[in-house]
Amino acid sequence: MSYKVNERVLCFHGPLLYEAKVIDTEKKEDSSTYLIHYRGWKNSWDEWVGPDRILKWNDENLKTQKELKSTALAAKQKSAATKKAASSTNKVGEASGQATKPIGKRSRESSATTMEGESRETSQRAKAQKSASPVPHVIKNEAVSEAAVDAAVKAVEEESVDEEPPLPKHKVRVPDVLKLWLVDDWEHITKHLQLISLPRKPTVRAAIAAFRESKISSLTNEVDVDVFEQAMAGLAIYFNKCLGNMLLYRFERQQYLEVRREYPGVEMCDIYGAEHLIRLFVSLPELIDHTNMDSQSIDCLLGYIEEFLQYLVQHKDEYFINKYQDASPNYRSLIGV
Rank of each mutant, 00 (worst) to 15 (best):
K28C: 01
K28T: 01
E29P: 01
D30T: 08
D30F: 03
S31V: 02
S31L: 10
S32T: 04
S32E: 10
T33V: 13
T33Q: 12
T33E: 12
T33F: 10
T33Y: 01
Y34D: 04
Y34C: 00
L35F: 01
I36L: 04
I36K: 00
H37V: 08
R39M: 12
R39E: 14
G40I: 13
G40W: 02
G40V: 12
W41N: 09
K42S: 15
K42Q: 15
K42L: 14
N43T: 15
S44I: 15
W45G: 06
E47K: 15
E47L: 14
G50Y: 11
G50W: 03
G50N: 09
P51F: 06
P51L: 12
P51G: 09
D52H: 05
I54N: 00
L55G: 00
K56R: 03
K56L: 11
W57A: 09
W57F: 09
N58L: 05
N58R: 02
D59S: 13
E60H: 02
L62A: 09
K63A: 15
T64A: 05
T64C: 03
T64S: 06
T64G: 02
K66L: 12
K66V: 10
K69H: 03
K69C: 04
K69D: 05
S70T: 12
T71K: 15
T71C: 07
A72I: 07
A72R: 01
